[in-house]
């Protein structure tokens, strides 16, 4: 098989995931797109490992590690998403703007409602 087939498929999957990460608004859909990007990388690793016939099978071992890391990442990510949803009542990325810089200075209005939230997140 030509190496170009899996390489091109991996590139297209990665760019699909890139579009999803940039364009989606729900946090869980963004996590799905991240999974697509990770899978594209895994496909590249397996294809190059089979091509190079590595005696250590570094590509396949790294693929297994990446799959395990992706599972850990999705667990932690969903815990964080659920925590944000419990605190804010929304999983909309466009509305989580507490760390954004604003043109108009609304510090006095923001600081007081933010205080219990940040404290709760720090202690939770």
């Amino acid at each position: 098989m030509h190496l170009a087939y899996p390489a091109v498929l991996a590139v297209l999957l990665f760019c699909t995931g890139l579009y999803g990460v940039l364009a989606r608004r729900n946090v869980i859909l963004v996590l799905m797109s991240v999974e697509l990007m990770l899978n594209a990388v895994n496909l590249n690793l397996v294809a190059f490992d089979v091509w190079l016939r590595d005696t250590l099978h570094a590509g396949q071992a790294l693929t297994l590690f990446t799959i395990a890391l992706a599972a850990a990442e999705i667990g932690i990510g969903l815990a964080i998403v659920l925590l944000v949803y419990r605190n804010r009542g929304s999983s909309d990325l466009d509305r989580l703007r507490d760390l954004a810089e604003r043109a108009d200075d609304a510090d006095a209005a923001d600081r007081d409602p933010q205080q219990p939230d940040t404290k709760a997140e720090a202690t939770a």
Partner: peptide
């Protein structure tokens, strides 16, 4: 479901897809 910057996202994705392919 999609945010307002989907056209910018589409531009970035297609540009990177073309370059990488």
């Amino acid at each position: 479901a999609d945010s307002g910057n989907r056209w910018a996202a589409l531009t970035v994705a297609i540009a990177s897809a073309v370059a990488l392919v």
